[in-house]
Design a protein around this nucleic acid. Structure first.
Length: 701
RNA sequence: GGCGAGGUAGCUCAGUUGGUUAGAGCAUCGGAUUCAUAACCCGAAGGUCGGCAGUUCAAAUCUGCUCCUCGCUACCA
C-alpha cells in the first residue's frame, strides 16, 4: 500500500502479565517495533508508540493460585517487572499502559456496547462447567483432570502443561474444580458471540486481495488458512470474576473475553496518553517527543483518521487475533482504521531448543539485565541480526559473544576509536579542516550518501536484519577508508591531508551516531557525548557536514568491550542449571485426587493382558489399533500411544488394561477398554507391567 | 490426517517480478598493515540451492509428487 500517510500508530503486543518475558518476546515484537518507531521519529514523522500490560484472562487468577496470592498482586508484580525491563532495554514507548486501568475498562465496555447496540453480537446459551460449592462457572483453566493424551493427572481444561496438547474441559478424565476439588456439573450459561463468518467476504477482500503483496508470507498464509477453514462465531464473554464486566443488565458474573479487551488496550493506551499529556498529569505516559499543544480527544486522529498508518508488531502466536478478530471488531464498530501491516515474527529458539519460561529454557529479560546491566545494546544488536523474520531463528551464547566481539567491538567500536584517537593525537581533539578531495575521498562520500536511504528502505519494508547489516557495513566503510588512506603514515609530512581524511572519518562517525540510534540507542547517546554532537535528524544524514571543522570533541572512551569466554561459559552453565532446577522442582508428585470409597474402586476391573497385534491407524498420528488378549477374550483397543511406541516394539508385551470401561467408537472403530500407562514427567509413556510374567487375565487389585 | 511456513556454503541467514561464473557475516586458510580493544584492510577456498519428475531457450525461483523441521488443527477414554 503506497498511501501517503500523515501519521503513524505503532503498537507492540501487550505482554501478558502472568510472568516474566524472555528474549524471544523481544525478538518477536518489541525490538523491531522500537527500531521502527525510533527511525520514524528521527525522520520527523508524527508517530505514537503504545504498549502496556495485558492483565486479564483466566491465567492471571490461575497464576495467583500458584503463587498463593491475589490476581491484583500478580499483575502488579509482573507489570512492574516487565515495565522496568522494557525501559532498561531502551523501548521508547510513548506510553506503557495497563489493561486494569479504569480508562481501559471504559473503552472496552464502550466498544462492546457499540457492537451490541448495532446488533452485531449474537447471544447463545451453552453448557459450561459449574462449581456448585463455589457457586461459579469455571473457566477452562479452573478445571483440572487427567489428560486424555498423556495421562497427566493435573491437566488444565484448556491445556495439558505436561504434554502441551490443547484440550477442552469436556475431554478431561475425572474433571474437578480447582476451587472446591469437587466434580463440576454442566449448567447452561449465556454468552455474546461475534459471528466472524459474517465478515468472510470482507476479510477475503481486505486481506487476500489487497494485502497479498505487502504482508509477510507467513502472516498472509495463516490468515488464508483460517479463512479457508471456515470462520465461526466466537464468544466475546466469559464466566469469570476477573476482568472487565460485561456492561449489560443481565450479565452478572460475566466479563469480556481477554482477547476482546486486550487489543482494545492499544486504543485505551492512546487515549490515556493524550489525556495525561493534555491534563499534564503523567502517570503512565512517557512521551518521546514534544506533542505540542494537544487536546484530550486528539487520540482519535490516531485511530479514526484514514491518513494514519496503523502497524501492529506481534509474534506469530498472535496472528489470528491481530489479523482477523481485532480487525473485524474495528471494522464492525464502524469508525476505526485497520492495520496497514502486521509484520509478525516467527519464534526464536535458544541453543537448539524451543524457548520456554516454564521449562526453564529461556533467557528472561530481567536475568539478562542482571548479568549485563550496561549492555542493553548488545542484546538489541544480537537479536536484530538474527530476528526470526521469515522463519524460526536461533540464539546461542557463542553467537552472542561473536557478534559482540567481532562486530560491535572490532568493527563499529574500533572504527570510532581509531578516528577519535587519531584526532586527539594529531589535531588536539578538534575536528580538522577539509582540504582538497581526491578520488578515494569522493568515492567514500558517494557511498556514505547511499547508506541512510538504503537503511530507511529496509526499515520501511520491515526488514530489520537487513537494515542492521547495512548499519554495520557503514562502520566497515569507515575502517576501509582509514586502511586505504593510512593517515598515520602521512602525518609526518602532510598534516593537512591527514586533516582531510580525519574530517571525513569523523563525519562518518557522526553519521553512525545518528543512524545507529534506532538500533543502539544507548550507544548512540554515548557516541554523541564523545563527539560533543547532538544531531537527531535522519534527513540530514548521508552528508559530510554534520560537524564543523574546529569543533572540539568530547572525551573518548570505548563504546563496546570484549566479552571473554568465561562469561559465555557461565551463561551456558546457568541456562542448563536453570533447566535442571525446573525439572527437579516439578518432580514432587501431584496432589492426590479426591477420596473415593472402596466400592467405587472395586467397580474397576483391571487385568493384565498381552498385546497380540498392533497396527497404525490410517489418518491418525497418535492412535494405535491393538488386539489384546485379556484372558477373558481377545478384544480391540484403540490407544493414543503411537507417538511413544511403534507397533513392532509393543507387540507381545504384557500390559495393564481396564476391561470394564464402556466401549466407545474412536475413528470409526469400537474400542473396548483402556490400556493403563505411566506417564513420566516429560510426558513420555511407559507400559505398566508385572515384575514377572503372569497369566493373561490376572486381576489387579 | 488437514491447513500454513520453512528446508540455500561448516554455522547463522539473504536471494526482489525465472536470465549470464548462487550472495553476506562468522568460522577456516593465505596476504598486507600497525592509528586502533592482536583489532582493521585485501584475497582464497567452501554449495549438484532437501529429493524426484515436469514446464521453459533458461528454474534456488513456476507446477506436481516425495522426505524432513516448525506452527495451527483433528483423532486420544
Amino acid at each position: 500500500m503506497n498511501k501517503n500517510y500523515q501519521r503513524y500508530t505503532v503498537t507492540a503486543a501487550l505482554p501478558y502479565a502472568n510472568g516474566p518475558k524472555h528474549i524471544g518476546h523481544l525478538a518477536g515484537a518489541y525490538i523491531p517495533a522500537d527500531v521502527y518507531v525510533r527511525y520514524l521519529r528521527l525522520s520527523g514523522k508524527d508517530v505514537i508508540f503504545v504498549c502496556g500490560s495485558d492483565e486479564h484472562g483466566t491465567a492471571i487468577p490461575n497464576q495467583a493460585l500458584k503463587e498463593k496470592t491475589t490476581p491484583q498482586a500478580i499483575i502488579d508484580k509482573y507489570d512492574s517487572l516487565i515495565r522496568d525491563c522494557f525501559y532498561k532495554l531502551g523501548m521508547s514507548f510513548d506510553i506503557y499502559h495497563r489493561t486494569s486501568e479504569p480508562i481501559h475498562h471504559q473503552t472496552s465496555q464502550d466498544f462492546f456496547l457499540t457492537l451490541h447496540q448495532k446488533g452485531l453480537l449474537t447471544e447463545e446459551v451453552s453448557e459450561q462447567y459449574y462449581d456448585e460449592e463455589a457457586k461459579v462457572f469455571l473457566a477452562d483453566r479452573y478445571i483440572v483432570g487427567t489428560c486424555p493424551k498423556c495421562g497427566y493427572a493435573n491437566a488444565y481444561g484448556d491445556q495439558c502443561e505436561k504434554c502441551g496438547s490443547s484440550l477442552s474441559p469436556s475431554e478431561l478424565i475425572n474433571p474437578r474444580s480447582t476451587l472446591s476439588g469437587k466434580s463440576p456439573v454442566l449448567r447452561p450459561t449465556k454468552h455474546w458471540y461475534l459471528p466472524l463468518q459474517n465478515y468472510e467476504s470482507w476479510l477475503r477482500e481486505w486481506i487476500l486481495e489487497s494485502h497479498k503483496e505487502d504482508w509477510r508470507a507467513s502472516v498472509y498464509g495463516q490468515c488464508k488458512s483460517w479463512i479457508d477453514a471456515g470462520l465461526q462465531p466466537r464468544a466475546m464473554t466469559r464466566d469469570l470474576n476477573w476482568g472487565i464486566k460485561v456492561p449489560l443488565p443481565d450479565a452478572e458474573g460475566k466479563v469480556l473475553y481477554v482477547w476482546f479487551d486486550a487489543p482494545i488496550g492499544y486504543i485505551s493506551a492512546t487515549r490515556a496518553l493524550f489525556e495525561e499529556i493534555a491534563e499534564k498529569k503523567k502517570k503512565f505516559a512517557t512521551p518521546q517527543r514534544d506533542f505540542g499543544k494537544i487536546q484530550k480527544d486528539d487520540w482519535k486522529k490516531y485511530w479514526h483518521n484514514e491518513e494514519t498508518k496503523l502497524v501492529h508488531f506481534i509474534g506469530k502466536d498472535n496472528i489470528v487475533f491481530h489479523c482477523i478478530i481485532f480487525p473485524i471488531m474495528l471494522h464492525a464498530s464502524g469508525e476505526y482504521i485497520l492495520p496497514d501491516n502486521v509484520p509478525a515474527n516467527e519464534f526464536m529458539n535458544l541453543e537448539g531448543d524451543k524457548m520456554s519460561t516454564s521449562r526453564g529454557w529461556s533467557i528472561e529479560m530481567h536475568e539478562y539485565l542482571e548479568d549485563f546491566p550496561d549492555k542493553p545494546d548488545v542484546l538489541r544488536y544480537v537479536l536484530l541480526t538474527n530476528l526470526p523474520e521469515t522463519k524460526d531463528s536461533e540464539f546461542t551464547w557463542k553467537d552472542f559473544q561473536a557478534k559482540n566481539n567481532n562486530e560491535l567491538v572490532a568493527i563499529f567500536g574500533n572504527f570510532v576509536n581509531r578516528a577519535l584517537v587519531l584526532t586527539q593525537k594529531y589535531f588536539d581533539n578538534k575536528i580538522p579542516a577539509l582540504g582538497a578531495l581526491i578520488d578515494v575521498d569522493k568515492n567514500i562520500i558517494s557511498e556514505l550518501k547511499n547508506f541512510p536511504s538504503q537503511i530507511a528502505f529496509s526499515l520501511e519494508s520491515y526488514r530489520f536484519r537487513e537494515a542492521t547489516a547495512s548499519l554495520m557495513d557503514l562502520a566497515r566503510l569507515g575502517n576501509k577508508y582509514l586502511a586505504e588512506t593510512e593517515p598515520w603514515k602521512l602525518a609526518k609530512n602532510d598534516l593537512p591531508r591527514v586533516g582531510t581524511i580525519l574530517n571525513l572519518a569523523l563525519q562518518i562517525v557522526a553519521n553512525l551516531a545518528v543512524v545507529c540510534e534506532p538500533f543502539l540507542p544507548s550507544s548512540s547517546k554515548k557516541l554523541k557525548e564523545m563527539l560533543a554532537f547532538d544531531g537527531t535528524d535522519w534527513t540530514k544524514t548521508g552528508s559530510i557536514d554534520l560537524m564543523k571543522a574546529g569543533h572540539p570533541l568530547g572525551n573518548a572512551s570505548l563504546l563496546f568491550e570484549k566479552i571473554e569466554d568465561q562469561v559465555i561459559e557461565n551463561q551456558i552453565k546457568k541456562l542448563n542449571d536453570k533447566k535442571n532446577a525446573m525439572e527437579l522442582a516439578s518432580l514432587p508428585a501431584e496432589a492426590a485426587k479426591p477420596e473415593i470409597s472402596f466400592e467405587e474402586f472395586s467397580k474397576m476391573d483391571i487385568r493384565i493382558g498381552k498385546i497380540l497385534k498392533a497396527e497404525p491407524v490410517e489418518k491418525s498420528k497418535k492412535l494405535l489399533k491393538l488386539q489384546v488378549d485379556t484372558g477373558i477374550d481377545v478384544r480391540t483397543v484403540m490407544s493414543g500411544i503411537a507417538e511413544h511406541f511403534s507397533p513392532e516394539e509393543i507387540t507381545g508385551k504384557q500390559i495393564t488394561i481396564l476391561v470394564n470401561l464402556a466401549p466407545r467408537k474412536i475413528m470409526g472403530v469400537e474400542s473396548q477398554g483402556m490400556i493403563l500407562m505411566a506417564s513420566d514427567k516429560d510426558g513420555k509413556l511407559r507400559l505398566l507391567q508385572p515384575s514377572e510374567v503372569v497369566a493373561p487375565g490376572s486381576k489387579v487389585s
